[in-house]
């Protein structure tokens, strides 16, 4: 697994510096103009996701066939990639906390509670991990051309669903509005810790399922 991690690290290093520079520039501007802290917090997992996705994209371009001849079995290959996603997210999360602390100190704005400071925004990390896990599984399931079509379809689908949800909120008593209302009510009634645990459990299950799907795809696809 070490060899695969070294490989992914070497590939992501090529895009790391420009992405990091962009992130710090964004933070500096955001710090000066006093942007919402949540924006700074949520931007870092997205940045790490772009870097991780670029590694998957690079692997697709280079051809999976050769990667499959490297000395690893399917489980190790999939575990490593998800570990790499997790490490990227952890690094981005840690970096965002450092940056936020610096901004708070320099700007003199009131600091949030310690728990909130450290754990706020973890939902975004989980969402990104689920997205990356399924993105990777899809890249193993489909050849490059079909993968692009699937990705396009998913992005299009999410956009349509998002628009439908927004429309529903502002308009009639539709099914989507009812679902959103139901989630809102649960959110209001349930204690925060239960919500956090439940959400984390669901997220981890979805992420784990993506790994199972990736191993299955790898074992059954012709490369």
């Amino acid at each position: 697994m070490r060899g695969l991690l070294v490989k992914d690290w070497k590939i992501c290093k090529r895009v790391l510096l420009p992405m990091l520079a962009l992130y710090l520039a964004f933070d500096a501007v955001a710090g000066i103009i006093g942007t919402e802290q949540s924006m700074l917090r949520d931007y870092s997992p997205v940045m790490a996701a772009v870097i991780a996705a670029s590694v998957v994209g690079d692997e697709i371009r280079s051809g999976y066939a050769f990667s499959m001849t490297l000395p690893f079995d399917a489980k190790t290959f999939v575990l490593e990639k998800n570990l790499f996603f997790l490490l990227a997210q952890a690094a981005a999360w840690a970096l965002s906390k450092v940056v936020m602390a610096v901004i708070l100190m320099v700007s003199g704005r009131p600091a949030p509670e310690t728990g909130e400071f450290f754990f706020s925004g973890l939902w975004m990390v989980l969402l990104v991990l689920i997205f990356l896990g399924w993105l990777f599984a899809a890249s193993l399931r489909f050849d490059a051309e079909r993968f692009r079509m699937v990705l396009l379809g998913v992005v299009f689908g999410i956009t349509i669903l998002g628009l439908a949800a927004v429309t529903a909120v502002f308009s009639a008593n539709t099914a989507v509005a009812k679902i959103l209302d139901f989630i809102y009510k649960i959110n209001k009634k349930a204690p925060p810790s239960a919500l956090m645990l439940g959400g984390t459990g669901i997220a981890l299950a979805l992420w784990g399922l993506s790994a199972v799907a990736a191993v299955h795809a790898m074992k059954n696809r012709d490369f």
Binding site: G3, L4, V6, K7, I11, G63, F66, P71
Partner: peptide, 24 residues
């Protein structure tokens, strides 16, 4: 293994490849 048009990422250098092979 040698496969046509298929190998390590073209973003890498031979130095990187040596480092990866050492670990693998």
């Amino acid at each position: 293994v040698v496969l046509p048009n298929n190998g390590f990422s073209e973003e890498l250098t031979p130095e990187d490849v040596a480092c990866i092979l050492r670990a693998m």
